[in-house]
Design a protein around this nucleic acid. Structure first.
Length: 878
RNA sequence: GCGGGCGUGGCGGAAUCGGUAGACGCACCGGACUUAAAAUCCGUUGGCCGCAAGGCCGUGGGGGUUCAAGUCCCCCCGCCCGCACCA
C-alpha cells in the first residue's frame, strides 16, 4: 500500500481506536483455518520440525497450566514455520481414565459421552487461544481406531515375550479398586486417589521393561537436550548396581545340609569376612514354608505384611527379625555357621530376597546386630587408624573409597583396597562355582492390568484348555461394550452379562474374555508416533515415521519425569523389536515447564476465598461480597481445594488470548514457576494497546523506498530494529521467551521515542515502516492475532503467519564506535567512547589522560593497563 | 539417609567467555493532561553519606584464585525437589 505523503495523517492518529481482541481474534483464527497454516506439509523434501506438547486429559476445561504449555509450543511452532521448517504440531486427547468412570458413578453419565463432550469443550477453548495446531491429525485414545492398534501391538509384544502374565505382589488401591504400578505409588499412596496402598497377590499382565534396563540407562547419555534433572531421576529409578550373586550352603539345627543352597545378592562381597548373619525377606519361599509349621514365624510374616510403605512407616520401623531353625556355612571360614533370620528390612522384590549381614559396614545390618546381640567385626579400616584400634560404635563405616581404607581381619584379603578385595572374592567364588558377578536393577516390570471399564480392553481370551489366547488380529478391535452399569463396586466389564462370554479362538470351547483393561499410561506411551500417520491402518506408517520421528521438541510438566517419559522410551524400544518403528528415543529434546501459581486468600473464618472475590484497597484486602477482611497466604500451585484458580476462559474474555499468551511468556523463564497476577496481566494488556497506537501512528505515514543515504536518528532506529531482531531470534532459539519479550519492549520504546521527533521525510518513514514490520514479525509467534491485525493495518499482503522470518542486516549490527567502562583497580570510575578500530596504545593513552582516571589513581603508580577489546579497560595502580 | 537444584532491589527476573550488577516488566512515588474519572504520557526508585560533585557498601554468610568474581574453587547457612529399608 502506497499513500501520498501526508494522506490520512492526523485522521488515523487522532481516531486510533482501541484494539479489540473480541472481534479481531476470531477473525484471524478463521483466516488461519482457511489458509491451513498449521497443517503439516506432506512434502518430505523439506526440513521437518516436530513440536509436541503433552496432550491433555479431557477433564472438561483447560487450566492455566495448559495455556502455558501450549503457548510455549505454539511460539516454537510458529517460529520454526517462519524459519522454513515443515512443522508438525498436533493435538489429541489422553481420554481413558478414572474421572470418566467417577462421573458415571456420580452423575450417571456414560464415560464415553462425558469424555467426548469434554473434548468438544476443551477443543473450542484451545481454538480460542489461537494455537496453530494441526487438527486434521486429532484423535482421542478412547477412539476404537486408536486403541485397536494398541491391542495389535500388545499381541506382537506377547509373541515376542515382551508381555507376560505373572502372579506377583501388586500395589492395590482400595479406593479406585485397581492395581497400580510402582511408579504410580507416591509415598505409599495411590497417585490418583491418594489412598494408602495395600499389597495383594494377583495374576496380571506385565510388560518386560526390565529387559531394557541397560539400554534405557545407556540411552540417557545420548539425550543431550534433556534436562539433567530428568535424566538423573530416570537413572536413579532404573537403579543399576554391580555386585555378586552367590550361594550359602544351609544346614538345619541338627547339622544336616539342606539340598538347595541359598542365593544372596550383595554389592559388598569384599566384606564377607565381617558377615555375622544371613537374613531372608518375610516373603522368601523358605520363610513361607517354615511359617506353615511354626506359628511364631507365621505371626512375624503377618506383622511384616501389615507394615505400611509410607515415609513415616519406614522411618519409624525398627529393624526386626525372627530366628529361623537354619544355619548358613561361611564360604571361606570352615567352621563358621551364621545364624539365619527372617527380617523385615529385606525386600523380596530386589536381588534374591536374601542378604548376608555385615554389621560393621552397613547401617541396617548394624542396627539389626545391636538389637539381636550379634558380633560386629570391622573388616574395612581407615588408613590412618591401626587395625586393632578400629572400632564400630553406633555408626557403620560405609566408606569404600580405595584411597581411604584398607581390608583387615579378612585372611587372604588383608591389606587390599576394597576394589581389589571385591575382585579377589569374585574370582575365588567363580572358581569355587558358588557365585557369579551380577548387575541388579531397581526397576521392576510394568504391571499393566487395571480392573476398570474406561480403558483399552486387553485383547486376550482365557480358555480352560488352551490357556491365555490372543484375540486374532482380524477380530480387532476388541471394543468396549456400551451398555454397562456402574451401580456395583468393582469392574463393570466383569459384571456385564454377556461381554466376557466368548469361545476360544483356538479350540472353539467356551472361554472367558479378559476383563481387565490397560493402564492408561500405555495409551500415552506411543501417541507421539501415531500423530505421524493418524489415519493409517497400521499403528505407525513406516515412511511417515522415518520422516517425522523423533519429536524434535517435547514440552510438558516435570511430574512426568519418570512415569510417562520412561514408559515412552521403553515403548519406542519395544516397537522396534516388534517391527513397528525404528527410533530408539522418542523425544530428541525435552523441556519441562514450571507451574502456574497464584496467591492464596482466606477470609476471617479461615476459609479459602477465590481471587475473583478479593478486592484490593489501600488498607488491605477485602471480600467483594461480605466486605470482610481477607488475608493473603502463600503463593501456590493453582488448585481447586485452595480456590486460587484463575480460569483462562475469563482471561480470554476480558483481555483476549494474545494478552494471556504474552503475560504467561513474559514474567518468568519457562522452566520456572510463574505467578499469575492481575497487575501483570493488565501490564500485558496495556502493551497490546500501546503497540496498536504506535502502529496506527506509523500507518498514517506513507511507506517510503529505502533512500540512498540514511543517517542520524533514522539510522539509529534501523540499528535498534536489526539488533533487536538478532537478539530476539537467539532468545527464541534458546526458549528464553521472557528475554525476547524484554527486547521487544525496548524496540517499542525506541519506535515511540523516534516518533516524537520524526519528520515526514523519506528516510524517517522508511525507518519507521521497517522497524514496525520487524517488530510485528518478532511478536507474531507470541501474539499472533495482534500481529495479523497490525500487518493488515500497515497494508501488507497475506498473513504474517505465512511470512518467512526476517533477516538482520549484518552491516547494521556492527558498531563503529564502542563505549568502554574504565576501571581503576577493579572499580568502575569512568567510561570512554572510542572508534572500534582504536588500537591498544591509543585507548591506553586517552584513558590515562582522563580527569576521573587521574583522580582515582591519585599518587599511586600505574603498573599495568589491561585493555580487553570491545569490553573493558582496567588500570592497575599501586 | 542418598541424589540433585536454587539463593541477585519492594516483587518477577536480566547479565554468551569471569569484564559497567540490577536489562525488561510489576509495584510504588512524583508530575503532565482532565471539571473529574478512566485512559494515556513523562520522570524517580538497591542501601548509606552528601546541597552538589562525588564517595562508600552491595548478588545468602565466610574464605580463596584473578588486573577483574553474581559467574571459578573451598567451607558454612537457608529453602526447594526427587528417591527411599534396593543389600
Amino acid at each position: 500500500m502506497k499513500l501520498p505523503a501526508g494522506a490520512n495523517k492526523g485522521k488515523i492518529a487522532m481516531s486510533s481506536e482501541r484494539y479489540n481482541p473480541r472481534t479481531a481474534e476470531p477473525k484471524w483464527q478463521k483466516a488461519w483455518d482457511a489458509a491451513k497454516i498449521a497443517e503439516a506439509d506432506e512434502d518430505r523434501g523439506k526440513r521437518k520440525f516436530y513440536v509436541l506438547e503433552m496432550f491433555p486429559y479431557p477433564s472438561g476445561r483447560i487450566h492455566m497450566g495448559h495455556v502455558r504449555n501450549y503457548t510455549l509450543g505454539d511460539v516454537l511452532a510458529r517460529y520454526k514455520r517462519a524459519r522454513g521448517f515443515n512443522v508438525l504440531h498436533p493435538m489429541g486427547w489422553d481420554a481413558f481414565g478414572m474421572p470418566a468412570e467417577n462421573a458415571a458413578m456420580d452423575k450417571g453419565v456414560h464415560p464415553a459421552k462425558w469424555t467426548y463432550e469434554n473434548i468438544a469443550n476443551m477443543k473450542a477453548q484451545l481454538k480460542r487461544l489461537g494455537l496453530s495446531l494441526d487438527w486434521s491429525r486429532e484423535f482421542a485414545t478412547c477412539d476404537p481406531d486408536y486403541y485397536r492398534h494398541e491391542q495389535e501391538m500388545f499381541i506382537d509384544f506377547l509373541e515376542k515375550g515382551l508381555a507376560v502374565r505373572k502372579t506377583a505382589q501388586v500395589n492395590w488401591d482400595p479406593v479406585d479398586q485397581t492395581v497400580l504400578a510402582n511408579e504410580q505409588v507416591i509415598d505409599g499412596r495411590g497417585w490418583r486417589s491418594g489412598a494408602l496402598v495395600e499389597k495383594r497377590e494377583l495374576a496380571q499382565w506385565t510388560l518386560k521393561i526390565t529387559d531394557y534396563a541397560e539400554d534405557l540407562l545407556a540411552g540417557l547419555e545420548e539425550l543431550e537436550d534433556w534436562p539433567e534433572k530428568v535424566k538423573l531421576m530416570q537413572k536413579n529409578w532404573i537403579g543399576r548396581s554391580e555386585g555378586m550373586r552367590f550361594s550359602f550352603r544351609l544346614e538345619d539345627e541338627q547339622g544336616r545340609e539342606l539340598p538347595d543352597p541359598l542365593p544372596v545378592f550383595t554389592t559388598r562381597h569384599d566384606t564377607i569376612f565381617g558377615a555375622s548373619f544371613v537374613a531372608l525377606s518375610a516373603d522368601h519361599p523358605i520363610v513361607k514354608a517354615l511359617a506353615e509349621k511354626d506359628g511364631a514365624i507365621a505371626a512375624f510374616r503377618r506383622e511384616c505384611a501389615a507394615l505400611g510403605t509410607s515415609e513415616e512407616a519406614i522411618e519409624k520401623a525398627e529393624k526386626k527379625g525372627i530366628k529361623l531353625p537354619l544355619y548358613a556355612r561361611h564360604p571361606f571360614k570352615k567352621d563358621v555357621k551364621l545364624p539365619v533370620y527372617a527380617a523385615n528390612f529385606v525386600l523380596m522384590g530386589y536381588g534374591e530376597g536374601a542378604i548376608f549381614g555385615c554389621p560393621a559396614h552397613d547401617q541396617r545390618d548394624l542396627d539389626f546386630a545391636r538389637k539381636y546381640d550379634l558380633p560386629v567385626v570391622p573388616v574395612v579400616c581407615p588408613k590412618d587408624t591401626k587395625p586393632q584400634d578400629c572400632e564400630i560404635g553406633d555408626e557403620a563405616l560405609t566408606d569404600s573409597d580405595g584411597a581411604n581404607v584398607v581390608m583387615i581381619n579378612s585372611d587372604f584379603l588383608d591389606g587390599m583396597s576394597v576394589p581389589e578385595a571385591k575382585e579377589e572374592i569374585a574370582r575365588r567364588m567363580e572358581d569355587m562355582g558358588i557365585g557369579e558377578r551380577k548387575v541388579n536393577y531397581r526397576l521392576r516390570d510394568w504391571g499393566v492390568s487395571r480392573q476398570r471399564y474406561w480403558g483399552c480392553p486387553i485383547p486376550v481370551i482365557h480358555c480352560g484348555a488352551c490357556g491365555a489366547v490372543p484375540v486374532p488380529k482380524s477380530d480387532l478391535p476388541v471394543k468396549l461394550p456400551e451398555d454397562v452399569s456402574f451401580d456395583k463396586p468393582g469392574n463393570p466389564l466383569d459384571h456385564h452379562p454377556t461381554w466376557k462370554h466368548v469361545s476360544c479362538p483356538k479350540c472353539g470351547k467356551d472361554a472367558r474374555r479378559e476383563t481387565d483393561t490397560f493402564d492408561t499410561f500405555i495409551d500415552s506411551s506411543w501417541y507421539y508416533a501415531r500423530f505421524v500417520s493418524p489415519h493409517a491402518g497400521v499403528p505407525v506408517e513406516k515412511e511417515a515415521a522415518d520422516y517425522w520421528l523423533p519429536v524434535d521438541q517435547y514440552i510438558g510438566g516435570i511430574e512426568h519425569a519418570i512415569l510417562h517419559l520412561l514408559y515412552s522410551r521403553f515403548y519406542a524400544r519395544a516397537m522396534i523389536d516388534t517391527g513397528h518403528a525404528n527410533r530408539r528415543e522418542p523425544f530428541r529434546a525435552l523441556f519441562t515447564q514450571g507451574m502456574v501459581i497464584h496467591e492464596t486468600y482466606k477470609d476471617e473464618a479461615g476459609k479459602w476465598v477465590e481471587p475473583a472475590l478479593v478486592v484490593r484497597k489501600n488498607e488491605g484486602l477485602f471480600h467483594a461480597e461480605t466486605g470482610g477482611k481477607i488475608t493473603a497466604g502463600p503463593v501456590e500451585k493453582m488448585s481447586k481445594s485452595k480456590k486460587n484458580v484463575i480460569d483462562p476462559e475469563n482471561i480470554i474474555e476480558q483481555y483476549g488470548a494474545d494478552t494471556a499468551r504474552w503475560f504467561i511468556l513474559s514474567d518468568s523463564p519457562p522452566e520456572r514457576d510463574i505467578e499469575w497476577t492481575e497487575a501483570g496481566a493488565e501490564g500485558a494488556w496495556r502493551f497490546t494497546q500501546r503497540i496498536w497506537r504506535l502502529m496506527n501512528q506509523i500507518a498514517a505515514r506513507p511507506e517510503a523506498e529505502a533512500p540512498a543515504e540514511i543517517s542520524g536518528a533514522a539510522l539509529d532506529l534501523r540499528r535498534v530494529a536489526h539488533r533487536t531482531l538478532a537478539a530476539v531470534t537467539e532468545n527464541i532459539e534458546n526458549l528464553h521467551f521472557n528475554s525476547a519479550i524484554a527486547r521487544i519492549h525496548e524496540l517499542a520504546r525506541a519506535i515511540a521515542d523516534f516518533l516524537k521527533t520524526a519528520k515526514d521525510a523519506e528516510a524517517d518513514n522508511f525507518a519507521l515502516h521497517e522497524a514496525a514490520q520487524i517488530m510485528i514479525q518478532l511478536f507474531a509467534p507470541m501474539m499472533p492475532h495482534l500481529a495479523e491485525e497490525c500487518w493488515s493495518l500497515l497494508g501488507h499482503e497475506g498473513l504474517v503467519a505465512q511470512r518467512p522470518w526476517p533477516e538482520a542486516d549484518e552491516s547494521l549490527l556492527a558498531e563503529d564506535t564502542v563505549t568502554l567502562p574504565i576501571q581503576v583497580n577493579g572499580k568502575r570510575r569512568d567510561e570512554i567512547t572510542v572508534a572500534k578500530s582504536a588500537g591498544r596504545e591509543e585507548i591506553e593513552s586517552s584513558v590515562l589522560a582522563r580527569d576521573a582516571v587521574k583522580r582515582a589513581i591519585g599518587d599511586k603508580t600505574v603498573r599495568k593497563v589491561i585493555v580487553v577489546p570491545g569490553r573493558i579497560v582496567n588500570v592497575v595502580a599501586k
